[in-house]
Design a protein around this nucleic acid. Structure first.
Lengths: 191, 191
DNA sequence: CAGAAAAAATAAACTAGTTTAAGAAAAATA
DNA sequence: TATTTTTCTTAAACTAGTTTATTTTTTCTG
């Protein structure tokens, strides 16, 4: 028997009340529970009608691959966060894969829309995502890589522990070599 | 008598049907019509509970100013587009000013939320904005300034006509000097 | 726990983009 | 239309970040 408790309590929290059995039934029908081991692939560029993922446990990254084969990390998402291509059902330019072994609840666009209509607070989540991305955008545009690294350490120290350095560098928009320089400079400064 | 027709027909289009007089009344009560001449300021960093703007006519830009005084354009918005800080009512980090003489319909957060609940398609607009920003983010991250300029020309040739070069350069994340180089190189190539 | 594989550090040469400054062109205004 | 102000161009010296390559360190796997 599949355990939907994490997902259901997420929706109860959204809704600020307990859900009826009917509501619970609807949710667990709309979502599919899936597990991926490290390096498992959830989404590939070119795919259409991709799904939305609510993460129960683990760590995912969403990224693009440019024509020369270079990868650029757009975002990471961990337990209790959503990840997906909001432009679905259009063919996606993104890849998603698992950085740790990860379990998710996934839902297709049609179901997602229905649920957004019903649980209005979920819609405002998209607004929050926008605000977050805009902030990140401004940072990358206006600050040096060193400043952005400092900011990431302040705001998300845990992520740095969980990620290999080359994923962080790609998230910051620099090469692993340059991040390594930043780090050694930083280490020198503070001892 | 203030003319709300552009705003009202926007909502009729959203809703895919005509609005009742009551609905029209609600909308024109919730929105305030304002005009700004070129260089007029609509929003300043530090302000709280900022408003949302639907543009009837003209051109606005949203930008930040870093501690050294440098400006970074985050986005431009023209007639029939929305602009605002979606993080409101929190104190905004953004400035908005008019690049042309501009008339807008503005609404405060509370009214905006109410309207979003009623005109659901407006909520999906936020989703579209997110998708747009994410695309732009990936471009800035993964492409050279030259490629980004090329892309802007393809996708928004009109904007280039309406904007001084130094605003475009800031939007692309480079200095005016460098954009000028890109342009002269481009001009040389194609004659 | 040995060997292989993956990740990180370091160095050196390079390049995309910045800075400062001065002159030319274009646009606004009297 | 002459004058002032704003915008754009060009040049030259500079720097933040890249590239390629080699070595060291850490992590994974049989």
């Amino acid at each position: 028997m599949v355990d939907y408790s994490v997902l259901l309590s997420y929706f109860e929290k959204l809704n600020k009340r307990e859900l009826s059995d009917v509501e619970k039934g609807e949710i667990s029908t709309a979502f599919r529970k899936e597990s991926f081991k490290k390096k498992g692939v959830l989404m590939r560029a070119g795919e259409s009608n991709t799904r939305h993922y609510y993460i129960e446990k683990g760590l995912l990254r969403l990224y693009v691959i440019d024509p020369s084969g270079k990868e650029f990390n757009v975002l990471f998402a961990k337990e209790k966060q959503w990840l997906g291509d909001l432009a679905t059902p259009a063919p996606t330019p993104y890849y998603i894969d698992a950085l740790e072994s990860t379990s998710v609840f996934s839902i297709e666009e049609a179901g997602f829309q229905k649920i957004i209509g019903y649980y209005m607070d979920l819609a405002s989540n998209i607004r929050k995502s926008y605000v977050f991305l805009q902030k990140r955008f401004v940072s990358i545009l206006s600050k040096t890589a060193e400043e952005n690294y400092e900011e990431l350490i302040q705001q998300n120290p845990e992520l740095i522990q969980r990620l290999p350095q080359y994923h962080i560098s790609s998230y910051l928009g620099v090469t692993p070599v340059f991040l390594s320089k930043i780090m050694s400079k930083r280490a020198r400064k503070r001892q």
